[in-house]
Design a protein around this nucleic acid. Sequence first.
RNA 1: UGGCCGAUGGUGUAAUGGUAACACAGGGGCCUUUGGAGCCCUUAUUCAUGGUUCGAAUCCAUGUCGGCCAGCCA
Length: 601
Amino acid sequence: MSEPAATAAAAEPADFIRDIVSADLAAGRHSRIHTRFPPEPNGYLHIGHAKSICLNFGIARQFGGVCNLRMDDTNPTKEDIEYVDSIQADVRWLIGGWADETLGLKPVGARPPMPGAPGTDFHLPAVTGTGPEITGREPFFASDYFDQLHDYAIQLIQKGSAYVCDLSPEDTERLRGSPDRPGTDSPFRNRSVAENLDWFARMRAGEFPDGARTLRAKIDMGSPNIWLRDPLLYRIRHAEHHHTGSRWCIYPLYDFAHCLSDYIEGITHSICTLEFEVHRPLYDWILGQLNLPRALPHQFEFARLNLGYTVMSKRKLHQLVTEGRVTGWDDPRMPTISGLRRRGVPASAVRHFATRIGVTKFSGQTDVAVLEHSIRDELNRTAQRRLAVLRPLKIILTNLGPDDRIECEAVNNPEDPSAGSRRVVLTREVFIEQDDFMEGPPPKYFRLRPDGDVRLKYACIIHCDAVIRDAAGKVTELHCTADLESRSGGANAARKVKGTIHWVSATESVPAEVRLYDRLFTEQEPEKDGRDFKSVLNPRSLETVTARLEASLAAPALGERFQFERLGYFWPDPKTPSGSPTVFLRTLPLKDTWAKETAKI
RNA sequence: UGGCCGAUGGUGUAAUGGUAACACAGGGGCCUUUGGAGCCCUUAUUCAUGGUUCGAAUCCAUGUCGGCCAGCCA
């Protein structure tokens, strides 16, 4: 009976935030749990956001609560509808099949009640569920609360806790002081309530240009916490907003909008990253100033994800895109959610990764091997095996006739017997990987060599009789003899050879473009010691080859993932234009013990 | 030279005053028609110094090192 709960608990180990949530529930501080994921729509989501998504939706899922998806869109000059759309797609993909039921949305166009009588409480509850009616829903938008936020600002002015300041941006900065030196009161700090109300109304009416005036909280210019030195609440921006159009020319700042957005949506636990820790006193101050009737949300901070061999900031990722270092936000080399998705990384692998790395307040750097292990772990269990040769070397099996077709049974997935098997055809001419033949090989090289033996997987053992070269001395083909009795079920089936390699028939295989992706950066810490991250971009992060694939791969279904045996995990590029030949992308190579062995020398 | 927050094997985390453990990475072995997967073994850890305590990774003090904060960004 308690089985599902126990399973969930096992899948999502406790962390300090879940401990707090449990304790809050146990102490009756909340009767239900409501989190939120609040990205600003100014870029694509990356794997660091994935950690936050898994945390927020994971908590909602584990405690039977809801997690609102909210656009934190209070800065019209940086945001765009393109990002609103991509964020929704990425979140839905990541939580799909796992936490869909906890996704808090709202009916399209729904907004909190219009400001009315004094004491009006603004509340916009979430709608959840996965039924067909979901088409009538959309994410929450902080910009939907501009009326309410404006109303709260007036309440603050009325109780003498906020004032309109005429200082220029430069003077505001100067009077703020520095971390080790207190600030100075603004000369406009002690205006009367009536005066402030009037100036604020005129700000809203559009009487002043950008930057001319601000609304500031009246807290303490001497505070050691800079965010308590009369922080700005509203600024003037005569700019079109992607969601509210031209209705406003004043926009709230993050600190003012965020805590109140949380309150309006009934959020209980507002989970964010460490850099907001110093803002928490302001978060609590604003909520505490207003006479809010419902339970207040509380902010908790955890360490953002840092991952080796990549950068993790929207600004830097943006730069890679706009400078053409990658093909777009969804380039398979990008650490974006859309990049991972296009590369073929399953959402479950990303989630698994997120739970493995844990949640703490320590900012360290996670080894990319942990991510790669999560991906391989998932794909090893689920991907169908296929034979493909990336860099073909032709072999003539001289004891086979030109019309001989030897059908061999190939297992689809040794990890999953129910995946069944298929037939691959051995013919007189086959391709093997160039790397799988070597003249004068080093010790412990198990593959084909002159006068050596190797097994063609699922087929038979072959012996290399002759090496054919072109005028330049380059090996162009091999002449081999096939021991057909070494096939499965044959008299020599039990014959042992050191190596088994993959292959395809030269006449019954198809050519295809395959893109081999590698890490985007050559350094584990691209920005170590202040280095420019673009100076350590990996010049070989993408290599394109024309491979030969076994015939069954001629028309693959989009979305199907494969392991090309001994090579790695691949899938058809979901962006292949319809009608054009399938391009395969490498999600991740297999672990390569031989490469590690040779690297030691 | 201000404030806030941190510090446990190489990396990330657990142990919530009572035997320091897990995963990844590394090393060795077994097995193998994937040098994959799997299985077994193994190396390696509490920042420092004091204090409290029968007992400290855990509590306290001081120090050291690291992260964050001076956008009309979020």
